[in-house]
Design a protein around this nucleic acid. Sequence first.
RNA 1: GCCUUAGUGGCUCAGCCGGUAGAGCGAUACCUUGGUAAGGUAUAGGCCGGGGGUUCGAAUCCCCCCUAAGGCUCCA
Length: 618
Amino acid sequence: MRILLIHSDHLKYQTKSKTRIAEKIDEEKKKGEYENALVVFTAVEKEDEKDSEATVENAVKEIVDVAGKVKAENIVIYPYAHLSSSLGSPNVAKEILSNMEAKLAEMETPVSRVPFGWYKSFEVSCKGHPLSELSRSITSESTPSAEEKGEEGEDEDSEAEESQFYIWNEGELLDPDEFSYQNEDLKKLVDYELGRGESTGEEPPHVKLMREKKLADYEPSADIGHLRWYPKGRLIRDLLADYVYTLVTDRGAMPVETPIMYDLADDAIRVHAEKFGERQYRMSGGKKDLMLRYACCFGAFRVLSDSFLTWKNLPVGIYELSTYSFRLEKKGEVVGLKRLRGFTMPDLHTVCADMEQSLHEFEDQIEMCKKTGEDLDVNYEVILRATADFMEENREWIDHAAAMIGKPVLLEILPERKHYWTCKMDFAAIDYLGRPIENPTIQIDVESGERFDITYIDPEEQEHHPIILHCSPTGSIERVICSLLEKSALEMKEKPPMLPLWLSPTQVRIIPIAERHIEFARNLAEELRDAHIRVDVDDRPETVGKKIRNAGGEWASFVIVIGDRELEGDELTVNVRETGQKVSMGIQELIDVINLETKGMPFRPLPLPITLSKRVNF
RNA sequence: GCCUUAGUGGCUCAGCCGGUAGAGCGAUACCUUGGUAAGGUAUAGGCCGGGGGUUCGAAUCCCCCCUAAGGCUCCA
C-alpha cells in the first residue's frame, strides 16, 4: 500500500461521475468538506491482498502517529489509485479502505472516507509545514519505512536486493569493472546499464536527420511522441515491415491482426495491463473502460486462448506488426524516433510446450535477431538477463545462449522475478552519444499462459499451460530507423552518410544537363524502374553542380549525369556515393550491381513522382 | 512528471534594457541550355508558439498554457 499524507487547512471534494467499479453511496457522501484534516491519499496494491489485516493495522498505526504529531482534527481517507503502478483489485481495495476507516474510528480523531471508484473534483490546501507532506509504503510485515520528504522522489520500492552484473566471456563470469574491453560499444552499454553513462548534453543527431531527410516529423496537433511520416519515411517503414514479415513467416510464424484496444473488465487483460502501471492510454468507450495496447500480447493471447492447441501444433508462432503500440511515456522521456508514445513493433509470440522446447526456440530466435543486425548492417551488443532461479536451473543453457553471440555479453542476474519473464535477451545498438538503443528482444514468459487461460493437450490428453516466448526480431521499426540514422551520423567523418541500398528511397538519381537530355533520361529511368530499382530524374532547370549537390543531400546511392556524350555512347558515368568514385559502366551493369547488393531484401517502388519538378516539398 | 534552456517567413537564424520586423537558404517568375557539391535578376511569403497582464504603445517586460532540447527518473 502506498499512502500520501497531506496535513491540510481544508479539503473539499465533490463526486462527478461513476466508474465501473464505483461503490454505492448515499447522497450525503457525494460531497464533503473538512477543516484541519490529515488527508490520507491511499492506493491499495496487489501485494496487500495477501495479508490485508496486517496491512490495515500497519497503515492505521502510521496514520495515527502522524495525525498525533501534526495535531490534525480530522482524518480523511482518500482513495487515490495514482500512487501505485501495481494496484490491487477494486473489491479488495474497497474492503481494506473500509477496514482502515473502522479501525481509525476507534481512536479519538474523527474519521471520514471519500467514496471509492468515482471521478471527483477536489481541493486540498496543504499547510506547508515540514511534516505536512509525507509518503509511506505500507506492507503487511514491517513497520513502515519512513520517507520524510515525499518530494525527494527517493521512493525505492524497498527493493530487497539488487541485480548482479557480470561480463560473460567464453563461459566465465567476470567483474564488469575489471574486464578489459576490446569493444567500445560493449563498454558503453555496460556503463549505461550500471548507471555510469556520462552525457554530453547534445541532441541525438537522428532527430535532425529524420526531419531534414523528410522521413518523419513531430505532429504538434497529436499527443507528444506521435509522428507524421512523409512518403520516404513511410517507404522505409514499409520495407522494414516487409522484411520482418518474410523473416518470421519463413520460419513458420502465422501473421494475424488484432484490435488496438481492450476492455479492462476482462481480468486477464486488466492484470496484464496493470503490469504497465500508469504508462498506458486509458479511454472510455460508451460504458466500457478501455486501454490502448502497449504491445501485441493482448490480441495474441486472446487468439491463442480461444484456439484449440495440441502438442502436435507446438511450437507455434503468432506474428503481428503493431501499427501502433501505445505507451504513455513520461513527457521528458519522449525523444525523436528513440522513445515514442505511438510506435510500431514487430511482435512474435511463440507457444512452447515446456521449458525444454522454449529454450530450443529461444536459440532459433537468437539466430534470427543476429541476422537482422547483419541485414540492417547495425552492430548489436547483447544483455542476457535471468532470474537467479533460472540461472541456477539452466546454467549450461545460459552458457550456450551467450556463446551463440560470439563475443562477450553483459549478464544481469535478478534476485527475484519482477516481471512475467524469467529470462530475456536484449540486443542494443549504440547511438552517436554512446547510449544504447534497445532493439531486438527475446523473453521467456512463464505467467501469461495461465493468466490468459491458454492451454494445449499433451499426448495423454492432459491440459497444460504453455510457456510463451515474446520476440521482436528487430525491435520497433522506429528504433531501427533511429539506429540507422545514428550510425550514419557516427560514420559521417569517414564516409558520406547513407542508408543500406535496399532501404534508400532514391537508389539512382538521373541528372539531365539540358532540356534536350530529359527525354533520354526519362527513358533510362523507365528501364531502371522496370528492373525494380527506385530511380528518379532531376528535370528542374538548375545547373548540374546544384543538382549533384541536391542528390547528395538526399543521400541518392548512385547519381548519373546525362549529356551529349551519353546520348551517343552506351557507357554511363555513375557516381557511387559509398566510395565517392566515378565509375563508367553500362546500364545493365548498373542493374546487376544494385540487384546483387539488394539480393534477398524486399523491394517497393518509389512512392514519389519520378520527376523532381513534380515533387512536393514537405 | 520535476529542474534548466528555447520557440521570429517552409528551413537556419539576427533583432529583444519597449516605438508593431530583417538576412541567407528554399519557393515562384524571368534570363542563362549548362558536364559533376550553391549561375544571375526580380517577386511573394510573418496574428514574432497560444492566451492573459503592465503600458499611450509589447517580438521585446510580467504571469499561465502549449511545443521542443538537455538533465533527473523510467523503458515489461
